[in-house]
Design a protein around this nucleic acid. Sequence first.
DNA 1: CCCCAGCCCTGGTCGC
DNA 2: TGCGACCAGGGCTGGG
Length: 280
Amino acid sequence: MPELPEVETIRSSLAPALTGRRLEHVAILDPRLTRPEPPEIVARALEGERVADVRRRGKYLVVVFESGRHLLVHLRMTGNVLHPAPEGHRDDPHVRAVVRLDDGSDVIYRDVRRFGTWDLLELGELEAYFAARRLGAEPLSRAFTTASLGRALAGRKAPVKAALLDQRAVAGIGNIYADEALWYARVNPLAPAGGLSGEQIAALRVGVRKALRLGIRRQGATLRDYRGADGVRGQMQEEFRVYGRDGEPCERCGTPIVKTRVAGRGTWYCPSCQALRDAR
DNA sequence: CCCCAGCCCTGGTCGC
DNA sequence: TGCGACCAGGGCTGGG
């Protein structure tokens, strides 16, 4: 599941390959991708656009065109952007779009489960798009402070893990990095978000950044589908402290990691060093 | 506003 | 070997 580190890994290898290139031909094979816009309309609109930059906001990949338009790509669960196109992609039933660049290379969009989306925004629409979704702070930016995290969690009775998964609190965290961040911070995933102490909020901020930075350094986590744009697998799964490790000893205290369910998501934590504490 | 259940979607796994 | 049930979960909608 591509979260911030996976999207950032894709962004960083895509940016030099796409910047300055013109989109010569766009084929959108799955009409779901651009819903509710008709795929033909979006494909024709993209043709002729020249890439100015490839950025990221939360889990969104943002292709910036010289015209001022933006293509927002969200990979959701199983989306991949591949460049250069891998061998045999023409026979791959999961390829949902193909973009021919003016250097003759192809960018492939692949998505097994078809949750991913492409949104083409006109000049000046980007801010409103994110504002409408009330997308939260970038966790690796200077804007992500203990104070800003505290404000985002204040008054919320939901489990802190649910709050971390809410993109309005912090942008870019998904199920894997939420569990890892909580482990680093020694915070129980079920603790009410609004009841954390100042110390716990500070530790959580550090934990979030630590988990995400490690994820970027290891080029994301490949559990099954995720690949970098160059097709390379991530290595972050080798760094998991809790995610998917129920029954294995916590590396800090040796207590077996426990699996539970929070906010409908599989959730792993150490019941000892992430013990549920009374508020304050 | 908050919170949660349910939905979308496919492929892999498990039990029978 | 076949087949149905179930699970993975990001973002969104709708109900309470």
